[in-house]
Simulated assay, not measured.
Amino acid sequence: MSIDHRTRSTEKAGSTASWFADNGVIHVVSVRYAANGEVSEFEDAPTLGECFGRIPRALWEQVRYDYHHGSHENRERGETL
Rank of each mutant, 00 (worst) to 15 (best):
D22S: 15
D22T: 14
N74D: 15
R32I: 14
R54Y: 00
E76Q: 14
E76G: 03
E41P: 03
V31K: 05
R75M: 12
T16D: 11
L59M: 05
S2E: 00
V39Y: 03
V29A: 07
V63A: 10
F20D: 08
G37K: 14
F20L: 11
D22Q: 13
E73Y: 13
V25L: 04
T7P: 05
Q62L: 06
K12S: 11
Y33F: 15
A35I: 14
A35N: 09
L59D: 10
T47D: 00
T10M: 09
S15Q: 07
G24P: 12
A21T: 15
Q62S: 11
Y67Q: 02
S30Q: 11
T7L: 08
D44P: 03
R6D: 01
W19A: 00
A17M: 04
E79L: 15
G37Q: 11
W19R: 07
R54K: 14
E41R: 13
S2A: 08
G70Q: 13
N74T: 04
G24Q: 11
R57K: 13
N23F: 05
Y65S: 07
I55L: 01
C51S: 02
C51L: 01
P56M: 14
R77I: 03
N36A: 06
E61D: 12
E61N: 13
H27R: 08
V63W: 00
R8S: 15
H72P: 04
E79R: 05
G37L: 04
G70V: 09
V28R: 00
H68E: 12
S15P: 09
A35T: 15
A13W: 12
S2P: 15
A21I: 08
R64K: 07
R32F: 04
V31L: 05
G70C: 07
V25F: 05
T7W: 10
S15G: 13
N23L: 06
V29K: 13
T16Y: 10
Y33V: 00
E11T: 15
N23Y: 09
A45C: 05
R75T: 12
C51R: 01
M1V: 09
V25A: 04
R64F: 07
R64C: 02
Y67A: 06
D4N: 14
S9Y: 12
Y65D: 06
M1T: 05
W60G: 02
N36S: 08
A21L: 07
S2F: 01
A35Q: 10
Y67S: 02
L59F: 12
I55G: 03
G24W: 08
E79W: 11
W19M: 03
